[in-house]
Write a protein that binds this DNA or RNA. Structure first.
Length: 593
RNA sequence: GGGCGCAUAGCUUAAUGGAUAAAGCGUAUCCCUCCGGAGGAUAAAAUGCGGGUUCGAUUCCCGCUGUGCCUACCA
């Protein structure tokens, strides 16, 4: 059976692979030797001039009693003598047999496909009919977003777009963490020292304003030993529904959420549904008790309910406190079950940092024990931590990279660069362009690495628009757009000239078509591995080849109309591929910049 | 202590068990009478240590060293 991604391949590797396997078997039979042949592997040669497909023959040397080099020679002869082989040429390359496929027909097919599919080029149907819920962001309402949240948001937003492009119906959900003792801390500091001020009266963005009281609490707590206790008492009052406490809580929550919403808006992040922890934190308690009654959980002597995880090699985990109140995992059990009842998903993806891997392992196991057949459909998209050169970011010590500050800084840098390059007069709205460039830089930076891996953010070195960056990608899009505008302006010159795909035959042109043609399988791959970085690499590779190519190859040349028309076709395919992939990783496309 | 990761050029990152380990930044040197130089070209520079599996290991296995996270009746 073919794997999902192979259905989108422009070059039919499977066909070649089957052919090679079949011919090797014939050769083996004719040799009269005994034994079984190992399976054929097909790979991509490391350099374009080595062809499009490669078949290493090392593994066959032993059974044939011949060197891989000899095998490559005879296999190549055999294959090239076949009249009904797929279009293309085989050639021996040391211990490999490589294949150069016939590009002209592939190019024509690809151009048609791109023309037909337009901005949806690259999408696939591997998840058709699937309902996928993606939970991400999940901020606390006691402080503004920092770089760690930004990685989460970019990933969640991008992976949702990628899943959608794979045919799934996606529900993006955010669970606002708006209760708990940490929330009470900023409230308490505000009561003590706030003097009734507000974001409006101080002109400070709401989330930053509340965050400043959280910081204030922590400095106060260093002098005041009862501070922590007072915060705890406030939480008790909150849980008892104390009117004044609730009112302040509502007011301050709104300040923060309004502020965070602005950040979302500013960074292109959106959700289909918001959940609030204050509404959901009690869910799950019944489920845990139910589990106890069914004997899948146990009760300690002091009354706390726990699950024994020794069957999966983990420690036991408390699920309900001895006083009967919920903890973090109790709530997650409840919300998962609740969500599945609300919107029966085929899959639920939690975008949460790797530090919570243990938590999710336990959570999924608990749900499985509770008899949720869909527990196997839960996926923790665990991403690595974002560190600064000095180490981990700490809110309390003020060593965080603030999300808003970062955007402001990037936007200012972009705006300055626009002026420096004298582009103001060419742009309709230089400020908006600057903002889009900042957004491109941010998203590309956050998504270019393997999500699993920790990243180090060096502010000085990371904030760049040159080299392997979002703006570089945007720039190539703008340059191609510019060429296409020039073409349109002089279209009369080229009227009546037919597109001839065989004029696009140099290595770079072949490479670009091959790359663009592989976009659907790359989108499928990024969906299956929950990894947008695949698309970042695609974009960068494509732009790099295009940059080099158009530096040496004039696209528009009235003296050679056929060549110009062919190259314009290439530009169109590249541009469509860029646009599609950029949309999936949140890089705004710019006609001009 | 136990569990889960990670270790590739000076720095930040790539590389389905296969061909000369790929880029960006930084460094050095070139290129605008050429569709917009946020560009292009050239150069120096790397698989932590020790075993194993394999025809072949950056990739898989074991040990060591270093490093990060988790190991709450916090979230």
């Amino acid at each position: 059976m073919k794997s999902a991604s192979e259905r989108f391949e422009m070059i039919d590797r499977q066909q070649w692979k089957d052919l090679v396997q079949a011919r090797l078997e014939v050769m083996f039979e004719n040799s009269g030797k005994e034994g079984t042949l190992p399976p054929v592997v097909v790979q991509v040669p490391p350099k374009p001039e080595m062809g499009d497909l490669a078949f290493p023959l090392f593994a066959f040397a032993k059974v044939f009693g011949k060197s891989p080099v000899e095998l490559a020679t005879s296999l190549t002869e055999d294959i090239n003598s076949l009249s009904d082989r797929p279009e293309g040429q085989a050639f021996a390359a040391g211990p490999y047999m490589n294949v150069r496929v016939d590009m002209a027909s592939l190019i024509e097919k690809l151009c048609e496909k791109v023309e037909k599919e337009g901005s949806s080029f690259g999408s696939t149907n591997i998840l058709d009919g699937k309902k996928v819920m993606v939970e991400f962001s999940c901020p606390n309402t006691n402080k503004p977003l920092h770089l760690g949240h930004v990685r989460n948001d970019c990933l969640g937003n991008s992976i949702s777009a990628i899943l959608k492009a794979s045919g799934a119906t996606v529900m993006k959900v955010n669970l606002i963490n708006n209760r708990g003792v940490h929330i009470c801390k900023s409230m308490l500091a505000y009561i003590k020292f706030g003097n009734g001020e507000s974001p409006e009266s101080t002109g400070i963005k709401g989330d930053h304003y509340v965050g400043s009281w959280y910081v204030r609490f922590n400095s106060w707590a260093k002098e005041e030993p009862t501070a922590e206790e007072q915060a705890q008492q406030m939480l008790v009052k909150w849980e008892q529904g104390d009117k004044e406490t609730l009112e302040l809580w509502k007011k301050m929550n709104k300040w923060t959420i309004d502020g965070i919403s602005k950040t979302y808006e500013d960074t292109g992040i959106s959700f289909d549904k918001y959940y609030y922890e204050s509404d959901t934190y009690k869910l799950g308690k019944d489920k845990v008790i139910e589990g106890l009654e069914r004997g899948v959980f146990q009760k300690q002597e002091d009354g706390a309910i726990y699950i024994d995880n020794s069957d999966i090699g983990l420690d036991k985990k408390i699920l309900l406190r001895k006083d009967g109140t919920s903890i973090y995992i109790t709530q997650d059990i409840g919300t998962a079950i609740n969500r599945h009842e609300d919107w029966p998903f085929d899959s639920l993806v939690y975008v949460v940092a790797s530090e919570q891997q243990y938590h999710f392992k336990v959570l999924f196991h608990v749900l499985d024990k509770l008899g949720c057949s869909w527990a196997k459909d839960l996926h923790h998209l665990s991403y690595g931590m974002v560190f600064l050169p000095e180490g981990k970011m700490k809110s309390r010590e003020g060593t965080v990279v603030d999300a808003d500050d970062l955007m402001i800084q990037l936007t200012a840098m972009a705006r300055e660069e626009i002026s420096e390059k004298g582009r103001d007069k060419d742009l309709e709205d230089p400020d908006k362009t600057a903002h889009d460039i900042a957004l491109g830089a941010l998203n590309y930076y956050m998504l270019q690495f393997d999500p699993q891996k920790d990243v180090t953010f060096n502010p000085k070195e990371s904030l760049s628009f040159n080299g392997n960056t979002g703006p570089y990608i945007q720039y190539m899009g703008a340059r191609i757009s510019s060429i296409l505008r020039n073409y349109t302006a002089s279209e009369d010159l080229y009227k009546g000239t037919e597109f001839n795909a065989s004029l696009l035959a140099n290595e770079e042109e072949r490479e670009m078509f091959k790359l663009c043609g592989s976009l659907p399988e790359l989108v499928a791959k990024s969906a299956q591995s929950y990894d947008p970085s695949v698309l970042c690499s695609f974009l960068y590779d494509l732009c790099k080849i295009f940059s080099h190519w158009y530096h040496d190859n004039q696209v528009l040349n009235p003296d050679d109309k056929a060549l110009s028309v062919a190259r314009i076709q290439l530009c169109k395919v590249v541009l469509a591929s860029l646009k599609s992939a950029m949309a999936l990783i949140g890089i705004p496309f710019l006609e001009k910049m």
